[in-house]
C-alpha cells in the first residue's frame, strides 16, 4: 500500500481529506505496536530536526509530541515563550526564521492566536504542525480522539457522538466536529446556550441543551473542559451550577439504559464537567487517549516527513 498525505502541513482538520485521516489511522496502528515494544523506537526520522514552539501552556500535547519525535529518532528543540526573546518584543516570524536558520525541518507550534500556523505556513518552508491555535483548531487532538473512538467502537460511519461542554471556546470541539463529520459520524453538541456558538448547525451538527437526553442518545461522549481562562465575561452562573446541569457523575450514568464511552481531552476540571467517580471509572478511556496521542502524532510526523524528498 502506498500513501501520501494531500498536504504539506497539518494546520487543521478542515483542510485535510477523509483519505488523509484514514492513512494517518493506518500508520498510527503500526506505531502503536512500536511503542509497546521493549525498545520503543524506530530510526525513520533520524535526519530530521523538529522545533516545538509553545507560545501557550501545555502538558500533554507537548510531552506527547516530544515523545513521538524521540521515538522516531528525530532531533528536537524546545521553546517556550515564557523564557524567550518573545518577552523582549520579537515578532513570531522573526523568532521562527531565526530558529529555521539553524536548520530545522519541521515546526510544531501552539499559539494563542487563531491562524498563527497558517500565517507561518504561508511564509516559511518547513512543515508546520498545529498543536492548537487559540480557539480555532487542535487537529492532532481530534485525530487521536477519533482514533481512540474507532479502536473502541469500530469504524465511525453512522456512530453517534456527543461533544459536551464549552464548545464556544474549544479548539478541540471544532477539530473534532470536522474530523467526525468527514468520517461520517453523527454529531451532537451539548452544553448551556451561552457556550454553544450561534449557527453551529451550519457545520452539520445538532444542538442539545439536555445532558441526560444526549447521553441516552450517544455511543460516545467527549466531555470538554470549561475554559475559564478564555472566558472574558461570565457565561455560566457558577461552577457549582454548571456541574449540576452539565457535569457527569456516576449516578447519572447509572440511570441511563446504556452508558456511552466517556472521553476527555484533559486537563480535567474534576468536580466541574466530570466527577472523579466517572473520570476514574471503567467507562472512561481518558488514559488510552493519551497513549494513542503518541502513536497518532508519530504517524503525522512520519507521513509529513515522508513527503519531503531529501537532497544533499
Amino acid at each position: 500500500m502506498n500513501g501520501q498525505l494531500s498536504t504539506k502541513h497539518l494546520l487543521g482538520i478542515k483542510h485535510i481529506t477523509k483519505e488523509d485521516i484514514q492513512l494517518i489511522f493506518h500508520t498510527a496502528e503500526n506505531f502503536k505496536e512500536v511503542i509497546n515494544r521493549p525498545i520503543k523506537k524506530v530510526p525513520s526520522l533520524r535526519d530530521v530536526t523538529i522545533a516545538n514552539l509553545f507560545f501557550e501552556n501545555s502538558t500533554r500535547t507537548r510531552i506527547s509530541f516530544e515523545l513521538a519525535e524521540k521515538r522516531l529518532s528525530a532531533d528536537t528543540i524546545n521553546f517556550s515563550a515564557a523564557a524567550s526573546s518573545v518577552k523582549k518584543g520579537e515578532t513570531l516570524l522573526d523568532t521562527v526564521n531565526n530558529i529555521l536558520s539553524m536548520k530545522v525541518d519541521m515546526v510544531v507550534m501552539r499559539h494563542p492566536a487563531p491562524g498563527a500556523p497558517q500565517f507561518l505556513a504561508d511564509r516559511i518552508d518547513a512543515n508546520i504542525i498545529n498543536a492548537g491555535d487559540g480557539t480555532h483548531e487542535h487537529p492532532t487532538q481530534a485525530l487521536l480522539d477519533a482514533f481512540s473512538m474507532r479502536e473502541k467502537v469500530g469504524e465511525l460511519k453512522g456512530k453517534k457522538i456527543a461533544i459536551i461542554g464549552d464548545i464556544k471556546h474549544s479548539r478541540v470541539a471544532l477539530s473534532n466536529i470536522y474530523c467526525l463529520k468527514k468520517l461520517g459520524a453523527e454529531v451532537v453538541v451539548c452544553g448551556p446556550p451561552t457556550l454553544l456558538p450561534k449557527h453551529i448547525e451550519s457545520l452539520g451538527v445538532n444542538k442539545s441543551y439536555n445532558l441526560k437526553e444526549t447521553l441516552e442518545w450517544c455511543d460516545i461522549a467527549n466531555v470538554l473542559r470549561i475554559q475559564l481562562e478564555r472566558q472574558d465575561i461570565q457565561y455560566i452562573p457558577s461552577k457549582r451550577e454548571y456541574n449540576q446541569y452539565f457535569g457527569l457523575n456516576l449516578s447519572l450514568l447509572n440511570s441511563l439504559k446504556s452508558v456511552p464511552v466517556i472521553m476527555h481531552p484533559g486537563p480535567i476540571n474534576r468536580g466541574i464537567e466530570l466527577d472523579s467517580d466517572v473520570a476514574d471509572s471503567e467507562y472512561s478511556i481518558i488514559l488510552q487517549q493519551v497513549e494513542n496521542g503518541v502513536a497518532t502524532r508519530m504517524a503525522i510526523l512520519y507521513l509529513l516527513a515522508s513527503r519531503e524528498k531529501i537532497e544533499y
Binding site: 500500500m1 502506498n2 500513501g3 524506530v42 507521513l303 516527513a305 515522508s306 519531503e308 524528498k309
Partner: peptide
Amino acid sequence: FYRDDFRRRTTPLSPSNT
C-alpha cells in the same frame, strides 16, 4: 520504519503489521 530510502523515494510506503 527501518528502510534506508525514507525521504528518498518518490512514493512513500505504508506499513504492514508487525
